[in-house]
Computed example of a mutant assay.
Amino acid sequence: MLAIVLGACVVLSDVYARRVPNAWLVATLLTAIAMAFLQKLSGASQVSWPSPLGLATGLISMLPFYAIRWMGAGDVKFFATLGFLLGARALLPIWVMGCLMTGVHATCVLLLRMPRIACAPGIVSVHQHLRAWPLWRRAQHARQGRVGLPHAAYLAIAAIVTVLAPELTQWGRP
């Protein structure tokens, strides 16, 4: 449940402001730990402990992409948090689905930058209407110059799919 709530918040924040607030990630980590302790104290027969291995796997696997500036620090920290919540095994399908969605987005952006497509009358009209929309202007202001694709949002969507429909992400597992 924590992964779904955090994921929904990250989708909105990353799409709108290209930002993943650290406070949300820390609060989620602490909440996951507190919930596990409360389960243990209540005498639950099975306690779902967060995964430090998942946290380390998520962090270590994404740090090289941050180092070469292919993704932001928020993306890395969010992926590590997902590893903590869902475990290391959940990270590969989340990463694959998130990267595929980001790739489609990047392809669309590149296509729309091609002179023949960018100057097409319909595209020009859509761009003009989009830029005149107050929500678009507020989002641009909220981004404070941050550019790039909302990769954390796509990772969040993939995490939500992984939690809600695990059968879709059990590639080759019995």
Rank of each mutant, 00 (worst) to 15 (best):
T169D: 07
P134E: 04
H127I: 06
A90T: 04
A153W: 13
T31A: 10
A80W: 02
A88M: 08
M97E: 09
L53A: 07
L85M: 07
P150F: 06
I33Y: 07
F65I: 03
S48T: 11
F78G: 04
I60V: 14
V126M: 11
L2Y: 03
H127V: 06
L30C: 03
A88N: 06
L25M: 00
P93N: 05
T57M: 09
P150A: 09
G58I: 07
K40Y: 11
A56L: 14
P150T: 13
V163F: 06
L164V: 14
G7L: 05
F37V: 07
A165K: 14
L29P: 00
W70V: 13
L29K: 00
P166V: 04
A106P: 12
Q39W: 07
W49V: 02
P121A: 13
I157A: 15
G74W: 05
H127C: 10
I123G: 05
A120R: 10
F65L: 12
T162R: 12
H127N: 14
P52F: 02
V5H: 02
W171C: 12
L41C: 00
G54R: 00
R19M: 07
V161P: 04
L30G: 02
L100R: 02
A139H: 08
L92E: 03
G74E: 09
A90I: 03
R116H: 08
K77P: 08
L82R: 07
A32S: 06
R137Q: 15
R143D: 01
F79S: 01
Q128C: 13
V161W: 12
A34C: 07
V20W: 00
V124D: 13
G43M: 03
R143G: 01
V96G: 02
C99G: 09
V76G: 03
V109D: 11
A142P: 10
Q128E: 15
S45W: 03
T162K: 09
L168P: 10
E167H: 14
V11Q: 00
W95N: 07
M114S: 12
M101R: 13
Q170Y: 05
